[in-house]
Design a protein around this nucleic acid. Structure first.
Lengths: 152, 152
DNA sequence: TATTGTTATACTCTATAACTATA
DNA sequence: TATAGTTATAGAGTATAACAATA
């Protein structure tokens, strides 16, 4: 009988490995995790978005969004433009390069997912996914808040 | 049939949720994730350790270790003392408070693990753990380096 | 000459607070 | 008065590089 602490240990180890790998992969494209999360929000919610909408979706302050957009704009992934009706607000949208990057990342993620799971027996795979859902549900019911799903 | 990308999505979501929760929990004790990882290394490898050993285990530079130990020492979790034979080196060891913290954290983790898994059917739990091992193995065989297991 | 740890410097991410422009 | 976004400031974590002391 495998004990619960060992399962948690594996889960945390998986967390660390995946996070480190993501950080390294993104660094090769000149990106950070935080900046990439902003790009994902932009894709998920549909562009353009204001700084305020980005700050709410990312659960960070307006100041942080300013910094992230500064970096992404300097690297040519997004552009700022004035809001057509609210002259206080800024809209953020993809550049061509940013849109290309999103397509590339999507393809890479699909490839990575196949790499991880395609050799797993089908019944094990199904149970694994169901168990992850169990854990996510359990976490929520225990009061661990789930973020707004700003993932690939 | 659940598709691979959805499985990866769940895995990454789990990663984010667990990481955010850990960050919040540690913040309540006045700790950060990085400083806590140093404490885990100290427990795992056995104290005392030199800065160099800590840097290698954490895969960060010596400069970073200096900063982390500065913070942990200021908060009273560890102490620095001279190496008995190598007068260039510093040894880092737990204080009483640091050792207490480690014991408390271990208990909290056991409790958290039970909370997550104790209601899961036994066969699903076993399959889940086996599948995580599969994924970890797969990651390694694909060239994603696993860190030195500096986990709780 | 090589290693240990520090100081110096810089960049990213994050926060709070003060401020400007606009609603 | 309230909101959107900026600047100012600060702290954590990270890196590289220069340096001192010691091996």
């Amino acid at each position: 009988m495998i004990r619960f602490e060992e399962a948690l240990d594996r889960l945390l180890r998986l967390t660390v490995v995946l996070n480190d790998d993501m950080t390294r992969s993104l660094a090769r494209e000149g990106l950070t995790v935080s900046r990439t999360q902003l790009l994902w929000v932009l894709r998920r919610h549909g562009e353009p978005l204001t700084h305020r909408q980005l700050a709410d979706a990312l659960d960070v302050t307006a100041r942080t969004v300013t910094g992230l957009v500064d970096g992404l704009e300097a690297d040519g992934f997004v552009v700022r433009r004035p809001h057509p009706t609210d002259r206080r607000a800024m809209l953020v949208a993809f550049t061509e390069r940013g849109a290309d990057l999103m397509r590339t990342m999507r393809a890479q993620q699909d490839h990575f997912a196949r790499l991880l799971f395609e050799d797993m027996p089908a019944d094990r795979f199904e149970t694994f996914v169901a168990a992850m859902d169990d854990v996510l549900t359990r976490l929520e019911s225990v009061g661990v808040p789930e973020p707004e799903t700003e993932k690939p």
